[in-house]
Write a protein that binds this DNA or RNA. Structure first.
Lengths: 347, 347
DNA sequence: TTGTAGGCGTTATCAC
DNA sequence: GTGATAACGCCTACAA
């Protein structure tokens, strides 16, 4: 026999008060409006009956769903789960739940998920889909839905965002390589229509310049996506350009996936890492330290990206039109086995 | 300026009918009750106004939220995201969304998440938290909430479940090793209070017997959790028992995480895989093929676990008390570089 | 085939 | 401080 659902009315009856009063007593915000004595009676009654407020009814009345939508490209990418965890944990603390939607980098899917979430009256949206230009942003604004961006920025910095300081991260990677003695450093850049791809590429150029190294256009390849396959393809390109043997002694990849692609391509070309070529990634994905060699990479606090984003979103929900905060989280260089001084005689 | 929310009433007015009629026309289930002509007018009006039914109001009325809860131990474990994807995709096709909750293997957290989901009136629950005995199961039954188990079974097979055929999977692993010539095969078993841990252990014993090999109790170690750390600990135990050098030539680990732990412990002990010791995992986690050596393991269709579970759940929601289906998905042996014949003279 | 009326459980706005 | 009342948007007996 299913448990009978206990309603506010039941509580009110047991406490001998009107439902409206019970409502006031139960809601911390309005509890001050009722006498301490009544409040206690109501609370006791609620406790005794095992009362659970019906969030659906509440939503209908208050027009707030205590639900936020999270749009991510692909939950299978190990980069995202920790961020989602961070979001969920912080949101749960505030009584919110997250609706996760995967977009698979597909505009149509993204649109569908977005509509679905609007229909469900989410109180806010977290977007991790990293394209720089984004029709959804304008639409969310028009619909007056608070939005926070994670792992990316909007083109004009007009949305609250939480992201790692990409340029600084790449600078750390390049300085590390330069410090080891590398002079011919290649970059496998990410897609330039994505915020991360662009800023890391910029960071690379800046870093090379400030290290007094030339940016050889032959040593920069642009990946079409942040995937292992693209990493392989770009690495091959790099090696081919070197006319049989690579024209570089180190590769700074725009993320770990691309770096894994480097590993595969190096194998294929009979090159050893780090003896022949050093590789640096970006993200410090889970398990990336288990590869051979363990990947030197740039870490940033994924979980914290989630918690901070949740915080920003909650602030926006509480008070629309607050200041647009943009948070840059500090990157950290994690030196592992994939980087070493260049092979002797490579200058 | 925010878009004005369009209600059913607005549509009705525009179509020149009563809201009730509009409701009937809009709902595919009841559309037959309304004249074709009226239906068209209503649909057109809805289209023109950009009408979106308010799912909150609908839920309040119908007592169905079109939401299902998914309880998983930890989204960070790469095993789960593909399952979650499968769930979400199949659910979305039926107009449902998934609420993901992490339990971190913690009873209190699990309880909280469960309550939270009950409060939100989920129409069903998917449990991936793998303990064999489970107070929540009884409670869900009492509350008449349909439940589907993934990646696990209930003690008495009384709940619909989708899982890989664990025993068969382990038999495949053991046969593979036996076929390579291994006779002293160790097992790092998972926690025995979890369905996967238990059935894989059973599978190991059965497989050894049917291969005509002895199960040496010194060569079976029980992990307290499916973690890399536990894998390391158990491997060390195994090596110590061998009095300086391992008494086995192969290890069948109850999952990939534990196998990764083997790798680390082998390194530590100065042993080579597969030259000294072969290792087999279970799950074929993402990126496990990128390790050195790439791990031989048992694969099963994670994504499909999700879609099938969603299907089962939808069936249960549509019709309580339907038959309890238990789906065993076929495992597949993926041979990679971590298994080879035992070193000569090891017999 | 369509309209009427009532209510799902809660809270906001009155009045007392 | 508390009670009465209405309404959030939708669905569904029941009546017409």
């Amino acid at each position: 026999m299913p448990d009978a659902p206990v309603t506010l009315r039941d509580v009110a009856v047991r406490a001998g008060v009107h439902p409206a009063t019970a409502s006031r007593a139960l809601n911390p915000e309005t509890r001050i409006l009722v006498s301490e004595d009544t409040a206690r009676r109501v609370l006791d009654a609620a406790e005794a009956l095992g009362y659970r407020p019906n969030p659906v009814a509440r939503s209908l009345r208050t027009r707030r769903s205590h639900t936020v939508g999270v749009l991510i490209p692909d939950l299978n990418n190990p980069l995202f789960p920790p961020m989602v965890r961070g979001l969920e944990d912080r949101l749960a603390a505030a009584g919110y739940v997250a609706l996760i939607g995967n977009t698979d980098f597909d505009d149509n899917r993204e649109r569908m998920v977005f509509d679905q979430m609007r229909a469900r009256h989410v109180d806010g949206l977290v977007l991790a889909t990293a394209r720089l230009r984004h029709p959804l942003l304008a639409e969310a604004s028009r619909a007056d839905i608070p939005v926070v961006l994670i792992n990316r920025l909007a083109q004009d910095y007009s949305f609250p965002s939480v992201t790692v300081d990409n340029e600084r991260g790449v600078r750390m990677a390049v300085s590390h390589l330069a410090g080891l003695g590398h002079r011919r450093i290649a970059h496998i850049a990410g897609p330039q229509e994505m915020s991360t791809g662009l800023s890391r590429y910029r960071g690379f150029v800046t870093a090379m310049e400030s290290s007094g190294l030339p940016v050889d256009s032959d040593l920069v390849v642009f990946a079409k996506a942040f995937t292992v396959e693209e990493g392989v393809r770009c690495s091959r390109l790099l090696f081919e350009r070197g006319a049989g043997r690579p024209g570089c002694t180190a590769i700074a990849a725009a993320n770990d996936m691309l770096a894994v692609g480097c590993y595969a391509a190096l194998d294929e070309a009979g090159l050893a890492c780090p003896e022949d070529i050093s590789v640096v990634g970006f993200n410090d994905m889970p398990f990336i330290d288990r590869l051979r060699p363990p990947l030197t990479t740039i870490r940033f606090p994924h979980y914290q990206v989630g918690t901070e984003a949740a915080q920003l979103l909650l602030e926006q929900i509480a008070e629309r039109g607050g200041p647009v905060k943009i948070l840059y989280l500090a990157p950290e260089l994690i030196v592992r086995g994939s980087t070493a001084p260049p092979p002797p005689g490579s200058a």
